[in-house]
């Protein structure tokens, strides 16, 4: 007769042994699932063969992004890596590791799916892009003013950069001055979720001065505007709000102007949308703040045609529509 205590002990030891064996196997399996350099090279070659203008590539999980860019960085320039949504692209390639699905393609049906080594590559066909004019991309064509006075366009390097110094100041930019950070230029900002966003840096100026960026635009139906505050400057939710107005023109004739949005800390990368008045061929984005201290503000906008089913981006808390100018901003 085996004593009860011995039976219990033997059972406990058997469980411990199973745990140890399970842990050893799990460790081996998990380590072996790592995608190696050979697989990444194969993924690069595969996608390079299939990539066409109007395509973009993303990876899931997102932590693998540097590995994807090592192979295909030239096909993923900053505007792609810092996209706000997928409205500018015809097709999306999703590089998936270990069965992951990217939130960017949530709800979409794949047009194709192929395995390359330990990686699965899915293609999604989105159709004709809805974006007709990208305000970040065409910043060089814009007119930039501070309280109506032109901000000169400069092309000079800067000496900034480094930990906790905010987004890099681009070489080409509109300098509104006097400090270096009062510029309008293309950069990449990390939003409140630390996601990269390719955008137009506009640090609000002192004394509620208005910085305005004006473009000539093609015929469009919708104006989609994203804005965000740099992570470090917004995460403590202490900063002042930044107000954005928008104006539409036909030639020099003002068709409509008014309040578009107020960005507050905690809003994250925020989307707003409004209809473009018929016949508009110019748009002006105006930015100002009552308390501009440490407001590392950045925005991306685009003029778009009819919305597609997928890839248009979603506004937080539902689509926000144009509102009339608030009295205190007048």
């Amino acid at each position: 007769m085996i004593p009860r205590a011995t039976r219990l002990a033997a059972a406990a030891l058997a469980v411990a042994a199973l745990i140890a064996i399970g842990e050893l196997i799990a460790h081996g399996v998990q380590a072996s699932r790592a995608v190696d350099a050979e697989d990444w090279a194969a993924v690069g070659a595969h996608l390079r063969e299939r990539f066409e203008p109007g395509d973009t590539i993303l990876v899931s999980p997102e932590w693998a992004d540097p590995l994807l860019r090592t192979e295909l960085g030239d096909l993923i320039p900053p505007p792609h890596a810092g996209r706000s949504d997928l409205a500018a692209y015809r097709r999306v390639f999703e590089v998936s590791l270990r069965g992951h699905r990217s939130p960017w393609v949530q709800g979409m049906s794949e047009a194709s799916s192929e395995d390359v080594g330990r990686v699965r590559i899915r293609r999604y066909d989105l159709g004709e892009p809805s974006v007709r004019y990208d305000l970040v991309e065409h910043l060089a064509d814009a007119q930039v003013t501070l309280n109506g006075n032109p901000c000169p366009r400069v092309n000079r390097p800067n000496s900034t950069g480094g930990a906790f110094r905010g987004p890099a100041i681009p070489r080409e930019r509109f300098h509104c001055g006097p400090e270096d950070y009062f510029y309008i230029g293309q950069t990449v900002l990390e939003d409140l979720d630390l996601t990269p966003r390719y955008c137009v840096w506009t640090h609000p100026h002192r004394d509620q001065s208005v910085q305005a960026v004006r473009y000539e635009i093609p015929n469009s139906e919708r104006f989609v505007f994203y804005s965000g505050m740099e992570y470090g400057s917004a995460r403590e939710l202490h900063g002042g709000a930044v107000t954005v107005d928008v104006a539409f023109y036909r030639g020099d004739v003002l068709l409509e102007e008014g309040y578009l949005d107020t960005h507050r800390d905690g809003d994250g990368w925020k989307r707003v949308e409004r209809a473009v008045p018929e016949g508009a061929d110019g748009v002006e984005v105006r930015i100002f703040a009552v308390d501009p201290g440490h407001r590392w503000f950045c925005w991306a906008g685009s003029l778009r045609g009819p919305a597609r089913e997928h890839g248009e981006g979603r506004s937080r808390g539902g689509v926000r529509f144009f509102q009339v100018t608030e009295p205190e901003n007048e």
Partner: peptide, 16 residues
């Protein structure tokens, strides 16, 4: 992550 994004802007390239 901002250090990486600074590199993209400075070098106009995202390839490590």
């Amino acid at each position: 992550s901002h250090l990486e994004h600074q590199a993209w802007v400075r070098f106009q390239d995202t390839a490590p």
